[in-house]
C-alpha cells in the first residue's frame, strides 16, 4: 500500500518520538535530582523492611502476657506492647500492609480512572453522564465512603483495598478527562484524524501517551492518601483483621497506654508519617519534572 507524503511524515514522526520518549526522558532527568534520589532510597528502605521483616525481627504475632509493656531490651529493641508482643517486629511487619495498600490502590485507581477518563472525554453524551456520576461520588467524603464500604463488605485486605480505591477513582477520572480534552484540540490529533486514524488507534497512539505523565503523578499522590486512609481505617478498627500487623492498628492498641507509654504511639506514627511524606515529596518531584505546566495537586 502506497503511503501519501503526509502519512509517511506522520509515521516517521511517530517512530522518532517512540525512540525519544519524552515521559521517559523527564523521568530520567527527575531521577538525577537529589530529592528524588533521597525519596527513592527511603522507599527502598521501607520495601526492604517489608520483605526482610521475618529475618530482621522476631515474630510480630507472638503473645507473651508475662512480658507486657516492657522497655526496650537487647532482644526486643523497641520493647513490648500490652500483650507482650515485640513492637519492633510489628512495626517492621506493618510496612507490608502500608506498601501493599499504597501500590494496589495506585494501580486500582489509575487503570479504571484512565479508561473512564478517556471515555468521558471522547464520548460527548456518555461522557456528560459519566461526569455527573463522578461529581456525585466526589460529593461523598472519601474517608466516610471508605469506612462505610469497609464496614459493610466482608472484612479483609482485598475489601480494604477496594474500599480505599473507589473514592480515589473520581479524582483520576477528572484529571485524565481534562488532559484528554486539551490533547484532543492539538493540531497533530486533527492531522491524525484527517489521515483516517481510527478511534482505537487514535487513543492508543496519540491520546494515551499524553496521559501517562499526569497519571503517574496522580497515582503517586493516590498511593500516599491510600496509606493514610488504610491507617485511619485500622486506627478506627474497621477493615483490617486484628491479626495482620498495621501501623494504624498499633496506634489504636497504644491509645489506652498513651499517657504512660507514648513510644508505643511514636514508632508506628513516625514510620507512617515518613512513608507518606516521602511518597508525597516524590509526587511533587515527579510533577515538577513531568509536567512543565505543573499539575495542581487535587484534593
Amino acid at each position: 500500500m502506497a503511503l501519501t507524503e503526509t502519512e509517511t511524515k506522520i509515521q516517521a514522526h511517530g517512530t522518532r518520538s517512540r525512540r525519544r520518549n519524552p515521559t521517559l526522558e523527564s523521568l530520567a532527568q527527575a531521577a538525577r535530582e537529589p530529592w528524588t534520589i533521597i525519596c527513592v532510597l527511603i522507599l527502598l528502605g521501607f520495601l526492604a523492611m517489608a520483605v526482610l521483616s521475618p529475618m530482621l525481627a522476631g515474630d510480630p504475632l507472638a503473645i507473651n502476657p508475662a512480658y507486657r509493656l516492657k522497655p526496650p531490651s537487647l532482644e526486643m529493641i523497641w520493647g513490648t506492647d500490652h500483650l507482650g508482643r515485640d513492637v519492633f517486629a510489628r512495626a517492621m511487619n506493618g510496612a507490608r500492609m502500608s506498601l501493599t495498600v499504597g501500590v494496589a490502590v495506585a494501580l486500582l485507581s489509575a487503570i479504571p480512572g484512565v479508561a473512564i477518563g478517556i471515555f468521558a472525554a471522547m464520548n460527548r453524551t456518555g461522557g456528560a453522564l459519566v461526569m455527573r456520576v463522578i461529581d456525585a461520588m466526589m460529593a461523598i467524603p472519601a474517608v466516610l465512603l471508605a469506612i462505610a464500604l469497609a464496614a459493610l463488605l466482608q472484612p479483609g485486605l482485598l475489601t480494604l483495598i477496594i474500599a480505599i480505591s473507589i473514592p480515589e477513582i473520581p479524582r483520576m477520572v477528572r484529571l485524565v478527562r481534562s488532559v484528554v480534552l486539551s490533547v484532543r484540540e492539538q493540531p497533530y490529533v486533527d492531522a491524525a484524524v484527517s489521515v483516517g486514524t481510527g478511534g482505537f488507534a487514535l487513543v492508543r497512539r496519540h491520546i494515551l501517551p499524553n496521559t501517562i505523565a499526569p497519571v503517574i503523578v496522580q497515582a503517586t499522590y493516590a498511593a500516599a492518601s491510600a496509606i493514610i486512609a488504610s491507617a485511619v481505617l485500622s486506627f478506627l478498627g474497621v477493615g483490617t483483621p486484628p491479626d495482620v500487623p498495621s501501623w494504624g492498628g498499633m496506634m489504636a492498641d497504644a491509645r489506652k497506654f498513651f499517657q504512660f507509654y507514648p513510644m508505643l504511639m511514636v514508632y508506628p506514627g513516625a514510620l507512617l508519617s515518613l512513608l507518606v511524606l516521602v511518597t508525597n515529596v516524590l509526587g511533587d518531584r515527579l510533577s515538577d519534572a513531568l509536567d512543565p505546566r505543573k499539575i495542581a495537586r487535587s484534593i
Binding site: 467524603p141 472519601a142 474517608v143 466516610l144 469506612i147 462505610a148 464496614a151 486506627f235 478506627l236
Partner: peptide, 28 residues
C-alpha cells in the same frame, strides 16, 4: 470533604460526642 474525614478521626481521638463519633460507633 477532606475536613469531614479528619473530623471523624479527630472526634474519635479526643472522645468528642459529635457526628464523627456517631459514625464510628455505627460502623463498629
Amino acid at each position: 470533604a477532606t475536613l469531614v474525614g479528619g473530623v471523624v478521626v479527630t472526634e474519635s481521638v479526643f472522645n468528642i460526642p459529635g457526628i464523627g463519633r456517631l459514625t464510628v460507633d455505627a460502623v463498629t
